[in-house]
Design a protein around this nucleic acid. Sequence first.
DNA 1: CTGAAAGCGCTTACAG
DNA 2: CTGAAAGCGCTTACAG
Lengths: 356, 356
Amino acid sequence: MPNHKPTAAASPDIPEGATAPAKRLRGGPKGLRITDVATQAGVAPITVSRVFNSPETVAPETLERVRQVVQKLGYVPNRLAGGLSSSRSRLIAAIVPTIAHSLFSETIQVFSETMSRAGYQVLLALSGYSDSSEEALLDAVLSRRPEGVLLTGVAHADSLRERLLNVGMPIVETWDMTGTPIDMLVGFSHYQVGVAVAEHFLARNVRAPGLVSANDDRALARRDGFRERLAQAGINGIAEVLVSPPSSVAAGKAALPALIEQAPNLDAVFCGSDLLAIGVLGAAKRMSMNVPSQLSICGFGDLEFATETTPQLTTVRVDGTRIGLTAARCLLDRLAGVDKTRVTDVGFHIVERETT
Amino acid sequence: MPNHKPTAAASPDIPEGATAPAKRLRGGPKGLRITDVATQAGVAPITVSRVFNSPETVAPETLERVRQVVQKLGYVPNRLAGGLSSSRSRLIAAIVPTIAHSLFSETIQVFSETMSRAGYQVLLALSGYSDSSEEALLDAVLSRRPEGVLLTGVAHADSLRERLLNVGMPIVETWDMTGTPIDMLVGFSHYQVGVAVAEHFLARNVRAPGLVSANDDRALARRDGFRERLAQAGINGIAEVLVSPPSSVAAGKAALPALIEQAPNLDAVFCGSDLLAIGVLGAAKRMSMNVPSQLSICGFGDLEFATETTPQLTTVRVDGTRIGLTAARCLLDRLAGVDKTRVTDVGFHIVERETT
DNA sequence: CTGAAAGCGCTTACAG
DNA sequence: CTGAAAGCGCTTACAG
């Protein structure tokens, strides 16, 4: 027979005349609490807590007994309470511009899987591509007291950087590169992508390259690398069309005529995404321009289908899965007290498919 | 001058000889608390709380004064504490098999945007396609005490259904249809998709259709509808290849020869996803089979690029954005106390592109 | 419109 | 290996 708690036996024996200060009730019973389990198992609440948080410190028989009660009652600990009490929320925030049709989704997928295997849960925060309400978003995120944060891109606004520098929790910036990370960083240089694509075009003796891309931070960095490398080769005044995110096939289609208007001799286009590249390809076909002989097209993102359906396109591949996994490991190491490599450059590859 | 709290003035005047029961400290100061703001603003903590939660009940001047202190100090309320105290976590859980390369990502995107506009945050839980650890996943989710749950698919395992029926929080099942939803439902019938694709093929006088798909619940429901409708038309013993998720172009490529081995006269394939369809299309090309004249191919998902790059393919379109928006509204209405329509069938469309 | 007290359900920090 | 007490940072439920 388990040892009974003395207090558990002495239930309603408060003297009639006692001046108990009229206990205020806060709503009805909301569910099972740790004390319910403790009472049934004949242990103190702290022992039930240990069964969940440090089972190795509990005697095997006690462990078994408590677990059976937990199972029987269907008790699920309240982590709001647990987190408040322990200052360990077991929550990680992931701040992403968007997950729809995006390269980031596989990063978040792996990141989330890895974190949850380690006992953390992911709070998803979509920032959109506008910086407008990023302050509010950060407030919302920080109000949950996450133990770590994954950012997509490097923090742009100074006010955000400032705040994040001061929160004192592990932070990984991803999908970009900078010399001044807030904390840890897993990504690659979009500027260098632009340079590499420029060199790819130059090697093909392109004369009048143009560019179509969304006007977000990273796409603009690629543009800058592209432009500056071409300028070194004496090519200036590049035709350019910027579209607002999300980029789409339709936007790519519309862009080609606009580019040709700016540069009638256009013979190459660097696109901010594979969807844009497919749009440009479609428009080129309709204008009877041969790709790639008359018009070289390079996308970005290396969508899975593209290899099969559009072998005329060159594209840039980034290993989003590796970014997610590495970012998760960085955070986990840091949370475990290990001082982790701060910057990881995962690089990128230009994927030139067989020319048709 | 703001009215000072009496207690705020009387700081360290406890008599030396007092037998104060050795206050135990729990770690150092972890950050700003509501009392820090209250003290600086010369109000009670509860007033600061009201500034955040019911500003309309606070005098304009007080409101302003408190907000300035909040701003100056950079105070962010602790929602672990707030949620524990108020039993309102302001958290919504979204349980999704996967968000990478998936149709669900746009549903989650819109769902998350809509919920966050309403002051909720989304906890992302990836269930994978295996039911193995779904119990553990649900425990993790419920431990956060979300105020609502979005499920992808209808709950399969009885034990899960049982638990969800009893948690007493609003639940929306999505992306599927059933006569016995747990609570609310926004989706469509995968079985009917299969029926519709069968009819599409029958209208084209197909004789020997086959099927390749992942072996998840919903894909199998499509298969069943497909099979049974064909059986009604006297077509039985359909060639079939099941692949494990995630489905891919490569899996589609590998499937076609396997299908032809089962059915040498194969003249149509219903694919579980557009990626599989692209793979089958690629394999057909390599085998010099004309699509669609020799081989009809139907995908599922209507990926954006496909319209442009693979006009030979037919596919099935579902409005994932609408599912996400509707699901969010259902939950929000319910949270606001409105009794909401329980079942919404968003339907689907067979998209037949111009035949090349 | 504002506040003092009590309580939300856990875990820390001791103590045995 | 186990437990009693105190505290985590808020909000509820009154009271004025």
